[in-house]
């Protein structure tokens, strides 16, 4: 796997006696969208947290471009190219939409320790932020406070923050959860657009089978924290074990 951007090797975390992620070894290549599926409690979000650094691994290692990042602080991983969106909307509620995106670009450009210039005087940052908002079709709401946005627009902003980060690895955790039928396609189209960029890897935790079918190049199935299946969508979905145990119920839900 010469072109693996992100790799986990025997990644494990234990909470007391419970093994939440169990020796997961997996590599993610550029230009590939990997859907991570599994029943609730299978360890999908925990696996994400281990990669982006919110939780420290008990054992095993994480590599980004062959550099080990297992013990690195979250912010450092972000600067190296891990971009994480969250399952529950996780924004800066009392700041404006534009300010939320500006903060991300400002972080990327290491401008956070400027004490005596005006925050909105850096037009390069403001323009870049405005461009991102246009891409996610939130430009009309730039001056709104985030707490005043609809749920769907907050989810879009969540994606906008990730696009603004311009990471090597995009990590989406149920990006369309709770979104209306009108809003969800906007987010899915954006992810499809990102997929077209062959230098990035995309990881997607998702329950909706139609989304997985239309976007995924590969499916990784987690079960009780361990890797249960890994392969092209058609193959994984067709395998009897996976079909019965995990996907059957989800298919019925759709």
């Amino acid at each position: 796997m010469a072109d693996a951007i992100l790799e986990t090797s025997d990644l494990t975390v234990r909470f007391g006696g419970h093994v939440a992620v169990d020796h997961v070894s997996c590599a993610f290549r550029a230009g590939e969208l990997t859907a991570i599926v599994g029943p609730n409690g299978a360890g999908k979000t925990t696996y994400f947290n281990l990669i982006s650094g919110q939780i420290r691994a008990s054992a095993g290692r994480v590599f980004l471009n062959r550099h080990e990042i297992t013990r690195m602080p979250v912010a450092e991983r972000t600067h190296r190219g891990i971009g994480r969106a969250f399952q529950l909307t996780n924004l800066f509620p009392n700041l404006t939409v534009l300010e939320n995106v500006r903060l991300v670009i400002q972080a990327q450009r290491h401008r956070g320790f400027r004490l005596f210039s005006m925050a909105d005087s850096d037009s390069a940052i403001s323009d870049a932020a405005a461009a991102v908002l246009k891409r996610v079709r939130l430009d009309a709401l730039a001056a709104q406070k985030v707490s005043e946005l609809s749920h769907g627009n907050q989810r879009k902003l969540e994606v906008a923050l990730l696009i603004a980060l311009d990471p090597l690895v995009y990590m989406f955790d149920e990006p369309t959860a709770g979104m209306s039928v009108d809003d969800a396609p906007v987010v899915l189209d954006l992810i499809a657009e990102l997929k077209a960029d062959s230098r990035r890897a995309i990881l997607l935790v998702e329950h909706k089978m139609d989304v997985i079918r239309s976007l995924a190049d590969r499916i990784v199935v987690l079960h009780n924290g361990a890797l249960a299946a890994d392969g092209p969508p058609a193959e994984v979905m067709a395998s009897d074990v996976v079909q019965e145990a995990y996907l059957g119920r989800d298919l019925a839900d759709v």
Partner: peptide
Amino acid sequence: ENDFRAEAIGY
């Protein structure tokens, strides 16, 4: 507002 997310976007 959200120290968790501030860290996640790189601060």
